[in-house]
Design a binder for these strands. Structure first.
Length: 514
RNA sequence: GCGGGAGUAGCUCAGCUGGUAGAGCGACAGCCUUCCAAGCUGUAGGUCGCGAGUUCGAACCUCGUCUCCCGCUCCA
């Protein structure tokens, strides 16, 4: 099973490359780890996924609007969001237990042990001296306690200096000098200390002293939060309302793996829905339902989805779940739905000094709204679509075909048009048909090789419909239209072609089902 | 980071105990004119991941290095 699934991922990777969906980044220079480029078919599929999401979220909901915020944001944004403090850790691994620790935490724990010793001395002394015990005086005069205190001060000083100078070798040396052992393995077999920064930083030249270090955003959500007031005021938005955004985000993952599933540069489709405090659970349930409905409408297979409720909640959330998809490597997170409380807006109020509140005319008072977030990984969605679409079929005659059963509305090419043979005016007629269709649908023309081979080529890139011009076409203006999945053909009049195709491949057909 | 596997044509791979590269599919051009891959002819495409070393000679042996895949670790 595992092997088969490994093979499936490998096949999808090869297929994606061979047919222009996804290429390894900078391949001619040996590639760049975990970065991928979307090719000519990939970009179409990706754009179609975006479009389906955007229309489902923004166009279909009167109270949701979209924005496109800058990737660069004021550095304080990330202090407010908690990203700067929470993910700037010196990490160290124990080679025997294979456990990873925060180096500063190991040192703090060591200090805590010494503090424990001081406390013991204090307790002992308190018993000895009885009522006349003066703790402060004892701490200031007892030689043993003073020794401990000095040791703590010295460790703290070394640690502080090392961190400030970003001298990771010194941090390691400190751990070695202190003889700190792994609590699991009991060994002192440590790796070097490495700084783990979740966020990519870069320099912004023109910003004044000290503030020139800025980050590439690790999530798009903050671009929405900092624009909460702008959108609410300028759009005259009333609670409850939402702000949607599609955009790139960057995370320096410790390990980026599994094709486009976990990349350091990726694209998110997020919507933050602002609600009245107290209503958040109702809306959390609402969006759980809405989002799973969106997925199921695509028809990738209902069994391929499941919810996973978070038991350990993040610092900002009071409820959270994932929509997981059955990827080749198993069920993995595809989308997150989080009830983020008022954590973010409050944090931005504190750091910016601006009121980020909504005045409720009914209640005649202002409040900081609560937020329900839906956040889906676009690249992961792409992989989910590819995973469910990739099929190897054995046909009745024993021959095989490889095809992508993409939802028609997402397919990079909607219609391929072929002349049965490339003479007798058939190619010209085929081009006329393309001119008729290309205003609304992405089309491809192909006259090379036997027509069966051309069908297979289109199957491989997921084109849902192929139209073939034959000699009869010249007589009665009809063509055959062939369905990718069933390989069945139907002969229809050219004048009906446009409306027929529109009906089959349109996004609105899916949107109606939401 | 640790452990395992792998890098040869666009894809899948072969290449013997070392003798300076092959196949199938694919692509392109042409022939044929045919409604579901595999008819015929021709063409293009590889400093065998990269760098050293051993050797008269390295895709093959040695060392180093890079990249990819899988598992563990991390994933607000």
């Amino acid at each position: 099973m595992a092997n088969q699934d490994d093979n499936l991922l490998k096949k999808i990777i090869s297929h994606a490359k061979e047919y222009g969906f996804i290429f390894p980044s900078s391949e001619i220079y040996d590639g760049l780890a975990a970065a991928y480029d979307y090719g000519q078919n990939g970009v179409e599929l990706k754009n179609n996924i975006k479009s389906f999401w955007w229309k489902a979220m923004v166009q279909m909901n009167e109270n949701i609007v979209g924005i496109d915020a800058s990737i660069f944001m004021h550095p304080t944004t990330w202090k407010a969001s908690g990203h700067v403090d929470a993910f700037n850790d010196p990490l160290i691994d124990n080679k025997d237990s294979k456990k990873r620790y925060r180096a500063d935490v190991l040192v703090e724990e060591y200090i805590a042990k010494i503090e424990g010793k001081i406390d013991k001395e204090v307790d002992k002394a308190a018993k000895r001296f009885g009522d006349s015990f003066d703790k402060d005086q004892y701490l200031a005069t007892n030689p043993r306690v003073m020794g401990y205190a000095e040791e703590i001060a010295s460790i703290n000083k070394r640690m502080k200096e090392a961190i400030e100078q970003e001298n990771l070798a010194e941090v390691k040396k400190l751990i070695e000098d202190l003889g700190i052992v792994d609590p699991v393995s009991g060994s002192k077999n440590w790796t070097d200390v490495r700084q783990f920064n979740l966020m990519f930083s870069t320099e912004l030249g023109s910003v004044a002293d000290g503030a020139s270090k800025i980050y590439l955003r690790p999530e798009t959500a903050q671009g929405i939060f900092v624009n909460f007031l702008n959108v609410q005021k300028s759009g005259r938005m009333k609670i409850p309302f939402g702000i949607a955004q599609i955009g790139k985000a960057f995370r320096n993952e410790i390990i980026a793996r599994q094709f486009i599933f976990r990349m350091r540069e990726f694209e998110q489709m997020e919507m933050q829905f602002f609600v009245k405090p107290g209503d958040e659970m109702e809306w959390y349930e609402h969006w759980k339902n809405k989002r799973i409905q969106w997925h199921k409408t695509l028809g990738l297979g209902e069994d391929n989805y499941r919810f996973h409720d978070h038991l350990n909640l993040a610092h900002y959330a009071n409820a959270a779940c994932d929509i997981e998809f059955n990827f080749p490597m198993g069920f993995k997170e595809l989308e997150g739905i989080h009830s983020r409380t008022d954590f973010d807006l409050k944090a931005h109020e504190e750091h910016s000094g601006k009121k980020l509140q909504f005045f409720d005319p009914q209640e005649n008072k202002s409040y900081v709204p609560y937020v329900v977030e839906t956040s889906i990984g676009l690249d992961r969605m792409f992989l989910a679509v590819m995973t469910s679409a990739y099929k190897e079929e054995v046909l009745e005659d024993g021959s095989e075909r490889t095809l992508l059963k993409l939802p028609a509305a997402l397919a990079p090419t909607k219609v391929a048009v072929f002349p049965l043979v490339k003479k007798d005016g058939l190619p010209e007629k085929a081009h006329e048909i393309i001119d008729l269709l290309k205003l609304d649908f992405s089309c491809q023309y192909d006259e090379k090789d036997a027509v069966g081979k051309r069908y297979r080529r289109q199957d491989a890139v997921g084109t849902p419909y192929c139209v073939t011009v034959d000699h009869q076409t010249l007589e009665d203006n009809t063509v055959t239209i062939r369905d990718r999945d069933t390989m069945q053909q139907e002969r229809i009049d050219i004048t009906q072609l446009h409306s027929r195709v529109a009906d089959l491949v349109s996004l609105s057909r899916l949107l109606k089902q939401l």
